[in-house]
Simulated scan of single mutants.
Amino acid sequence: MLLLPDKTFAAPVLKMGSANGDVWDLQYRLQVLGYYQDKLDGKFGTNTYRAVKRFQRQYGVAPDGVAGPRTWKQLKRFSVSRHEMDMLAKLVYSEARGEPYVGQVAVAAVVMNRLQSNQFPKTVKDIIFEPYAFTAIQDGQFWLRPNRTAYRAAWEAVRGWDPSYGALYYFNPDTATSRWIWSRPQITKIGRHIFAK
């Protein structure tokens, strides 16, 4: 049987002088995490180099300033692309609008916690669209247009705020019918949602 390489983390090696769409993605991810402060321009210059090195130091990658496979792997575990940020905001809005702001951040944090867990798919899209994972996908509310609050909540969760305290699941106790979800160890309750491991 022929095994094909895992393309989940495939991205070109980016270094000083690189200029393409992947540099835009790199800069966006670094900006979301607070490492890149400049305007996104798609050009890998000195400020992008410095931001990459700071990220690498913080996330256990040799700080060479080159965005290679190990750097991309860590970036994709702990950050999101612009498209993924849109999906995360849609999920927050469709699952938690009307909830306290901290509860909206917690919903986004659950997705980020899943992204870092070996128990779930390796991309935000695959986590969100995993069958039966989120009610808003099943009932179509995911496709509603998110508001600014949903984007801000998603942004804060990606930057590391986790009011769910590491939860991998959440549910509304007034509507949950699954015995399995009730069996999960509960961590905290925010608004109408219980967050669980």
Rank of each mutant, 00 (worst) to 15 (best):
K39T: 12
R179S: 15
K189S: 12
M1E: 10
T149F: 04
R159P: 06
I128P: 02
D22K: 10
D6V: 09
M1D: 13
V158S: 09
P69Y: 10
G42V: 10
L4Y: 11
Y132V: 10
A109S: 14
R50T: 10
I137Q: 04
K122Q: 15
I181H: 01
Y28E: 11
V13T: 14
F9W: 14
M16S: 11
K7R: 12
T48A: 05
P185D: 05
Q31L: 12
V124L: 10
V61L: 03
T46K: 15
L26D: 05
R82G: 06
R159Y: 06
F9D: 12
L91N: 03
G21Q: 06
K39Q: 13
S94A: 15
W155D: 10
Q141Y: 09
R159C: 07
A108D: 07
F44N: 02
D22P: 00
Y93K: 05
L168Y: 11
A153Y: 01
F171T: 00
S79W: 04
W182P: 01
A51S: 12
D25T: 15
G65R: 02
D22W: 15
M112Q: 12
N20P: 04
Q56C: 03
Y49A: 11
L14M: 08
R29I: 04
M85H: 13
I128L: 07
Y101A: 00
I137H: 02
F129R: 02
L88V: 09
R97F: 01
K122H: 13
S117M: 07
Q141F: 09
Y151E: 08
N147F: 04
G166I: 03
S94N: 04
L115V: 08
K43A: 12
L30S: 06
K76T: 04
Y151V: 09
K43Y: 15
A167L: 01
Y49S: 10
V102L: 10
L2E: 14
Y36L: 10
R77C: 03
V110A: 11
V66D: 08
V13E: 13
V110M: 07
Y151R: 06
I190C: 06
L168A: 08
P100F: 12
S81G: 13
T135Q: 14
A10G: 00
A154E: 06
V107T: 14
T175R: 08
T123Y: 04
M112D: 11
K43H: 11
Y59R: 07
E99A: 01
L115A: 11
A67H: 01
R70Q: 14
D25E: 15
K189C: 08
L40H: 03
Y132R: 14
D126S: 13
L75H: 00
D38S: 15
A150H: 05
G140Y: 02
F129V: 02
K189T: 14
A96S: 15
I127R: 03
E156H: 13
R97T: 12
W143D: 14
G21P: 00
I187G: 04
R152I: 15
Y49E: 13
Y151M: 08
D64L: 03
L3I: 10
W161G: 00
Y151I: 09
S94D: 09
P12K: 11
G166L: 06
Y169V: 06
V66I: 15
P100L: 10
